[in-house]
């Protein structure tokens, strides 16, 4: 135990090690049974993890060389030209949506959506432990978005897409002359209305609006009818954000099904943008 002594400046030095209960933290004596010293119990694991990662990365780097293709040539476009693998989920979306949605709006919504999660998930349960029962909606939604829409689309983009962004199984040889004749239709063309006409545009816009309108109001009314506590706690602003993000996310698989099953190209055509 160091001696208490007056320093030249006449000040006291704060020393950390005094036996007995801590003044700084009232409940220290209560939680101390629940604590471990960082050294060695945490730090040794961190160092061990660092060593394992370093060895793994070393082996990976010795056995596998980083790719280096021919010198860049702006006049020679590879087919397919793929973005880095971690963006291939977004590139895969280009099959179903125009670039302004797949490349700009959806990424922005993903980032903003992730950031607002703590503020719209007001469920106090499941804080710091694993549970599915206590937060079914949150986990299901997140895992669907992360594993299916993000990871699975990346896998499709990396392994299944060949020349012309056509589907090739990994064991299939890429045939750059393969042509798939498909005619895509805009939604209003199914009922015989030109999608580029004013009427077609209004119908298309109406359908998109109705999609979000119903998406926001129907669950609201259902929950209201059940006197849902969750809805009461959420409040109208949080509820609207949750519902908007949720239905925007589901817009992707819905459009995928429509495109793949019904060859649908656009739901809403305007002179400025198409959805």
């Amino acid at each position: 135990m160091p001696d208490k002594k007056k320093t030249d400046q006449g000040r006291y030095r704060a020393l950390a090690f005094v036996k007995g209960e801590s003044l700084a933290k009232e409940k220290d004596s209560l939680v101390s049974e629940d604590e471990l010293e960082t050294w060695p119990y945490l730090l040794r694991k961190e160092f061990l993890a660092a060593i394992i990662v370093m060895i793994g990365l070393m082996i990976w780097s010795i056995t596998l060389d980083a790719p280096l293709e021919e010198p860049s040539d702006p006049s020679l476009t590879p087919n397919p030209a793929k973005a880095p693998w971690y963006f291939l989920g977004l590139q895969e979306m280009l099959v179903y949506f125009d670039p302004w949605i797949a490349g700009v709006v959806f990424p922005s919504l993903i980032v903003m959506g992730l950031m607002v999660i703590p503020y719209i998930d007001i469920n106090p349960k499941g804080n710091g432990y694993y549970t599915f029962k206590e937060r079914k909606f949150a986990i299901t939604t997140f895992c669907f978005g992360f594993h299916v829409l993000w990871i699975l689309l990346i896998i499709v983009g990396v392994f299944m897409r060949g020349p012309g962004w056509l589907w090739f199984w990994p064991w299939e040889e890429w045939d750059s002359h393969r042509i798939v004749a498909e005619t895509n239709y805009d939604l209003t063309q199914f009922i015989g209305i030109d999608s580029k006409s004013l009427l077609g545009s209004i119908i298309g816009g109406g359908i998109v609006s109705i999609y979000f309108f119903l998406g926001l109001t129907v669950p609201y009314l259902l929950m209201k009818m059940k006197n849902s506590l969750v809805l009461e706690k959420l409040g109208i602003i949080r509820y609207s954000i949750v519902a908007f993000l949720f239905w925007s996310m589901l817009g992707l698989p819905i459009k995928m099904v429509l495109k793949l099953v019904f060859s649908l190209k656009y739901i809403w055509v305007t002179p400025w943008f198409n959805i």
């Binding site: 280096l68 860049s72 702006p74 590879p78 973005a83 880095p84 963006f87 670039p99 797949a102 700009v104």
Partner: peptide, 29 residues
């Protein structure tokens, strides 16, 4: 690395910026 891989990946990636609503010349508005 300035090879075909990087060049075209970045070309494809930044082409998205063209479609930014209001701020890209191929984007809405």
């Amino acid at each position: 690395p300035w090879d075909q891989l990087g060049f075209w990946a970045v070309t494809v990636g930044t082409n998205m910026a063209r479609a930014t609503p209001g701020l890209g010349h191929e984007g809405p508005f």
